[in-house]
Amino acid sequence: MSERKRPKLAVWKFSSCDGCQLTLLDCEDELLALTEEVRISYFLEATRKVEKGPYDVSLVEGSITTPHDIKAIREVRKQSKLLITIGACATAGGIQALRNFKNVKDFIRTVYAHPEYIDTLTTSTAISDHVPVDFELRGCPVNKYQMLEVLNAALNGRKPNIPRHSQCIECKESGTVCRMVAAGTACLGPVTQAGCGTLCPGKDRGCYGCFGPMETPNTAALAGQLLALGQTGRDVHRLFRTYNANADAFRKESDSHG
């Protein structure tokens, strides 16, 4: 195989569970083909080989939670032609952004030994809160087909087919019966961006919003309906306050059901 010029791919990690970058390794059928098209230049989870930047495409996982992260992400931005964030942590701060709603000092008053060893911020924030981002891929974790689609689109110079509409549309396309209407299940589908592959409704449970808010989420109207279905204000509050708690629309809605 001739060593033609392949775009350089880097995968970076900030505060996260590693699930989104693992998604890349979970592309079992496509991984080897992918490496024929891109040159993996930095991907610690998969290789100890490290190549210097600049990189054509950087995938960034995780949220910004330490002062060091802030410096590091700026460096990544500088080194990357295309910066794509992957997952709820990188696009909205992730589950660890729940600290944003609390006084972190309250967390600490509990027993622990040597706080001085640790350097952390009071907030967990999205990558785009710190540097410009070219594309944000949603999900907790991202969907591997969407991840491949974004890489594929970047390689082929086309627009990625990543819808920003509601999960409901995906449910209907797949013929999944609406849990909320047919069973009264609390579901965030109408305000959540599609893309997971209709997972929760397909498993007879309500969508819990791991793809974050859809393009024009009417969270207030949905919250009203959830209350009408018998959820309490606390339930609604908690429902919006999970993996994308710090995404604007979800944050505001959860705040109004304190």
Binding site: G19, G197, C200, K203
Partner: peptide, 18 residues
């Protein structure tokens, strides 16, 4: 069983959703 490989959604207290 769980819907997806990473953070599967099908498991719950008491068993499975479906």
């Amino acid at each position: 069983i769980g819907g997806r490989a990473i953070h599967p959604v099908g498991l719950r207290v008491g068993g499975f959703y479906k």
